Amino acid sequence: MTGKSENTPKSRALGAELRECRFETGLTQQQLADRIGVSYVSVSRYETGSRSPKPEDVAQLLTVLGVTGDRYSRLVDLSRGADQPNWLDTGQGIRKELTRLIEFERTATKITDVAIGVIPGLLQTADYARSVMADMATDEIEPYVAMRVGRREVLHRKNPINFDAFISENVLRDRFAGAATMLEQLRHLESMAELENVTINVIPAVSERWHPAHAGAFIFFDFAKTTPMVHLEHYASGVFLYGDDEVSPYRSALATLQQVAMDRDQSAKLIATTARELEGADP
């Protein structure tokens, strides 16, 4: 088998799904490698995304793993163009979207989430997440919530990622989830902000200058050994940017937002004040 060295978002997403398929069979990387006639190093590189297999290679892997039907077709199709730096992901259901995000969160050293419409996913409570997903099919909501809550593990593991969040002040005051749920969410933010590896900066609702957050939300991923990546989430699709020319402006945008946003202590005080106001106490 041959393939190209990538570490692109699409090759890493494909690798995560191939690893999931292998786990379901109970095979080790060495056992799978023996069955398809390659070294376990090749299998490892495919699963990490550092080398993307060709569609025909993916087809062989899936056949050995017993993957058939729609899943087989989808993964072979996912392998096409995996060497391209940027990726428009139209998604294949909420589980597959989260499989991809979980993979990037798991391997990142730092994540910076610029949240303009909702609380960042890694900081959401279960009830808040249910409210965000209110227009989804009923049978998808609970699996999504379980996976979203499970994603918090990267913030609490032995070597946790560093997580920075820029949250619009308007997000803190929005009550689409209901007052009780929003109060619980604000209290959760207070608790999370106490972690050494988590920094929350609030972007004031009123600004006298244009800044990058006016252009929309995005998530910036830093990795130890590969190029940074940016995720742009839309209503029914997402875009992953990987090329240096595409990613660099977002790095500059974060520097600008650092100047615009409240600092860590100011942000913590505003979150606490907003929570007190919501529960009817004196600010």
Rank of each mutant, 00 (worst) to 15 (best):
A180G: 02
A180V: 07
A180K: 13
A180Q: 14
A180M: 02
T181Y: 07
T181H: 03
T181D: 04
T181L: 07
T181C: 11
M182R: 00
M182C: 04
M182G: 02
M182H: 09
L183S: 08
L183E: 15
L183R: 12
L183G: 09
L183Q: 11
L183Y: 12
E184C: 04
E184F: 09
E184G: 02
Q185R: 07
Q185E: 08
Q185V: 11
Q185A: 15
L186R: 08
L186M: 01
L186W: 07
R187L: 03
R187H: 06
R187D: 09
H188K: 06
H188Q: 03
H188R: 05
H188L: 07
H188N: 14
H188E: 07
L189R: 06
L189C: 05
L189P: 01
E190V: 12
E190N: 03
E190A: 13
E190G: 03
S191V: 09
S191K: 10
S191I: 01
S191G: 07
M192D: 08
M192A: 05
M192Q: 14
M192K: 15
M192L: 15
M192T: 12
M192H: 04
A193P: 12
A193W: 09
A193G: 06
A193E: 00
A193V: 00
A193F: 07
A193R: 02
E194S: 09
E194W: 02
E194G: 13
E194H: 08
E194Y: 03
L195F: 08
L195N: 08
L195S: 12
L195R: 15
L195C: 15
L195A: 12
L195Y: 07
E196R: 14
E196Q: 13
E196F: 11
E196C: 13
N197A: 06
N197C: 10
N197F: 08
N197T: 12
V198I: 15
V198F: 00
V198E: 06
V198A: 00
V198M: 00
T199N: 05
T199A: 07
T199L: 04
I200G: 02
I200K: 06
I200T: 02
I200W: 10
I200A: 01
I200L: 10
I200D: 05
N201K: 13
N201Y: 14
N201H: 13
N201A: 08
V202Y: 00
V202I: 15
V202D: 04
I203C: 02
I203H: 14
I203K: 06
I203T: 15
I203V: 15
I203D: 05
I203A: 15
P204C: 00
P204H: 09
P204T: 01
P204V: 02
P204Q: 04
A205S: 12
A205H: 10
A205T: 08
A205W: 10
A205L: 01
A205G: 15
V206S: 09
V206Y: 08
V206A: 10
S207E: 13
S207Y: 02
S207H: 13
E208H: 07
E208W: 04
E208C: 01
R209L: 12
R209E: 14
R209M: 11
R209H: 11
W210Q: 05
W210C: 08
W210T: 11
H211E: 10
H211I: 01
H211M: 03
H211N: 08
H211G: 09
H211W: 01
